Computed example of a mutant assay.
Amino acid sequence: MLATKTIAALATRRVPGSIRLKHTVPDLPYDYNELEPVISAKIMHLHHDKHHAAYVAGLNAAEEKLAEAQHRKDLAGQVALQPLINFHGGGHVNHSIFWTNLIGEKNGGGHLHASPLKTAIEAQYGSLGALSQVVNAKTAGIFGSGWGWVTYNPAIGGLDVVTTANQDMPSTLGHVPLLGIDAWEHAYYLDYNNVKADYFKNIWRVVNWKDVARRYDEAVAHQKK
């Protein structure tokens, strides 16, 4: 339900004159080769320019059909479009988070600085290394395609590790996404072939912990309101 609400909110964006705003692929906050050797520039071009762009195109097309169905007051048509909107919308949202979750090693990737997030990780998991082992084990267990996540779980008032299938978002579980690891083959296969365990191990070298910590701070502040 939360995922549906999130995507529905995206679908109802308007500007004066009732012109629907189309979604666009956000620019990467770094060069395509920034994450090498962990993730190659070749994968980044394919992943960002092709795969993410395909989700955005699919979302825009589905929203056009949704607007038409709403205009016709076709409730059945609106309901039938929701899985498509959730899939492409989830792909767009998840990847938009993913790009900002990463940064090159030379620019601080992999460094967990002193912060409330670091305190929370050490309190709940003992160390960043222990957390990464939990995340990698759960993510490696995904059957098919999906995502591994470090989230803020309002139900427990702390961090949690979950996985989602395909392009489902953590909000479907009531969680706030902090760090996402894309476990779809297109995220790693050109570099790691079938040894995805090495991809899961190496990606921690390019995690942008400043971004993750900011998301954690915002999640905690929101719950306190």
Score class of each variant (00 low, 15 high):
residue 41 A to H: 01
residue 59 L to C: 02
residue 31 D to Y: 07
residue 97 I to C: 06
residue 42 K to N: 09
residue 52 H to G: 03
residue 180 G to A: 13
residue 204 W to C: 07
residue 2 L to C: 07
residue 29 P to Y: 08
residue 29 P to E: 03
residue 176 V to S: 09
residue 51 H to G: 03
residue 200 F to E: 05
residue 77 G to T: 01
residue 116 P to I: 00
residue 33 N to V: 02
residue 30 Y to D: 06
residue 64 E to M: 09
residue 207 V to T: 12
residue 48 H to K: 09
residue 142 I to E: 07
residue 148 G to H: 08
residue 162 V to P: 01
residue 21 L to P: 08
residue 9 A to P: 01
residue 104 G to F: 01
residue 79 V to T: 14
residue 219 A to Q: 02
residue 139 T to H: 10
residue 162 V to F: 09
residue 139 T to C: 04
residue 86 N to W: 00
residue 161 V to I: 03
residue 57 A to Y: 09
residue 105 E to G: 01
residue 156 I to D: 07
residue 215 R to P: 06
residue 109 G to I: 01
residue 43 I to A: 02
residue 131 L to K: 06
residue 145 S to Q: 12
residue 172 T to Q: 08
residue 28 L to V: 08
residue 26 P to T: 00
residue 25 V to E: 04
residue 90 G to I: 11
residue 94 N to M: 10
residue 45 H to G: 02
residue 101 N to K: 09
residue 83 P to K: 11
residue 170 P to I: 10
residue 195 V to A: 09
residue 155 A to Y: 11
residue 162 V to T: 13
residue 201 K to W: 04
residue 32 Y to Q: 03
residue 24 T to V: 11
residue 170 P to Y: 13
residue 20 R to C: 06
residue 225 K to P: 00
residue 158 G to T: 02
residue 8 A to Y: 10
residue 89 G to P: 00
residue 23 H to C: 09
residue 120 A to G: 03
residue 59 L to I: 07
residue 182 D to N: 15
residue 140 A to I: 03
residue 19 I to E: 08
residue 113 H to E: 14
residue 82 Q to N: 06
residue 130 A to M: 10
residue 85 I to P: 08
residue 133 Q to Y: 04
residue 171 S to P: 01
residue 199 Y to F: 15
residue 135 V to T: 04
residue 205 R to P: 04
residue 81 L to H: 03
residue 17 G to L: 10
residue 193 N to M: 08
residue 75 L to Y: 13
residue 211 D to I: 00
residue 209 W to Q: 03
residue 187 A to C: 05
residue 12 T to F: 07
residue 175 H to C: 13
